[in-house]
Design a protein around this nucleic acid. Sequence first.
RNA 1: CGGGAUGUAGCGCAGUUUGGCCAGCGCGCUUGCCUUGGGAGCAAGAGGUCGGGGGUUCAAAUCCCUCCAUCCCGACCA
Length: 578
Amino acid sequence: MGGIGMRVSNLLMPTLRELPAEAEVVSHQLLLRAGFIRKAAAGVYTLLPLAWRVIRKIEQIIREEMDRQGGQELMMPIIQPAELWHESGRWDVYGPELFRLKDRHGRDFCLGPTHEEIITALIRGEINSYKQLPLLLYQIQNKYRDERRPRFGLLRGREFIMKDLYSFDRDEAGLDISYNKMFEAYTNVFRRCGLRFRPVVADSGAIGGSDTHEFAVLAESGEATILYCENDECGYAANEERAEAVASTSTGNMAPLEMKKISTPDCRTIEEVALFLKLPPEKMIKTMIYSTEKETVAAMVRGDREINEVKLYNALGCIRLDLADEETVLRVTGAPAGFAGPVNLKGVKLVADREVMTLANAVCGANENDYHLVNVNPGRDFKPDIIADIRLVKAGEPCPVCGAGLHEAKGIEVGQIFKLGDKYSKALGATFLDENGKARPFIMGCYGIGVTRTMAAAVEQNHDERGIKWPVQIAPYHVIVVPVSTKDKDQVNAAEEIYQNLVTGGVETVIDDRPERAGVKFKDADLVGYPIRITVGAKGLAEGKVELYSRLEEQTMMVPLGDVVNAVKSKLRELAAG
RNA sequence: CGGGAUGUAGCGCAGUUUGGCCAGCGCGCUUGCCUUGGGAGCAAGAGGUCGGGGGUUCAAAUCCCUCCAUCCCGACCA
């Protein structure tokens, strides 16, 4: 892990006083300002020495935890032949996110966004027997995705460092074991990185598979919304996309009344209709018209709820899902948007949220301009093709496991673990022989950690107005020694001695030997975010003491010269213990 | 991909509306003096294809056409 001592006068650490205009989120701003990264192209960055040290520390923690679970590290090609992607079917499915290129002979290749194809093809050729399983293989390397819109600096780049582990088991039971190992490994990795995080139940997206968890670093700027149970014993936590709604019971056991059409001029939104009819939104059925690649769909949720498009997408099993345009709405409902309803709606697949089915004498659009239907009773007045949980769950709703309240938080997804099953092994014909000499596809799992994203997430979670506050475990250096004045020989000598002693003592240390004024050096130290600063000044030195400043705690203490190394080490242990 | 915006020195920006003197300011950088507990001061400097190409004009950073790049919102996102 590189040298553990460094002089700031030699360090490539180009700090900026002013904020680069291109940076919006805190991690991007601070990593640029503190001299960690520089942009080469949109979503493509050079990692300067300080950033690279952080990355290598994160990688090292990951390696240790992967190895502890029996993982073996290997290196796979970034350039991958189209052939394999044709075999898995993903050359066409992956879409424009796949960076594609041709060699001089016109053969197609891509830059690997992930390595299921490569590793499955490798295993197909090399592993033949159940006796060789399970197998856990991982890589830490650059991956590529041609994001439509790279943004947020390192949080969503087109080139990024990723750890991916792939597990190969003989059956589902084996996969469960591998999956649990990785769950434990990930928990250890993020804890050791000093991050506050939560594993959450997630949607498996296009990769398919049954179980999947995301690991979300809690931060206000996070793109993911997660819901978690207020009851710690329960521990339920899920991505908003996946958070299960508790099926509510009937809102009333009223006798069904006769359905009637009533005039509701200019009432297009639930709020307008509610106001006009003097009825609460939860008595209404919100009907949204969607288009998929194969059909038009009417999705219904209770008036006070919102549709969860991920759940709807899963319920429909479609590839594409978009809100229908104005023309389509007019064509299928015969009315402008705002008056759609499920009653007598022809040629459209009806999908109702489970909760809708509990409504009695409800209100919905009449599929006619300026009219709504009242006393609508699901089952009697319309029959959905699909009844499923398709709504968004909000904070305050009951936990689907224990019934306590759900809380909401924002998170940055830094890792995700998937059970793939035989999806890729079947597609690529990767099989082994079991005890009975029967060929069976490998049962696979894949487990990713965004390494560069983890670094950015750490900054999002650990900073203040002055700069970064690195958790000790992943700080680029632990200590910066700052002589207040480089003109004062005593200060310089004392600082140099402390620096040497720290380095000799195994503490990763830099010394700010630049002939700058104290303020400049302090500002840079705060910006870069060294956990500990040792300030050597005239006043303290007169008493044989220096100042130890803890960036994380924002506390200072005076330490006798002879005790510096021990004081630093014990403070670092204390900080690392959290 | 739809919508919005920007591109002038390493960074942050003014100048563009209404074309016209040498393209400016702050920070940073270089040299000297001075200063050294929170981004000091003085002085002297270096640094520019005004995003690229084409056009209009006596004259273009400024007007027109076109291409490119970058950022924001949305959609999208193993």
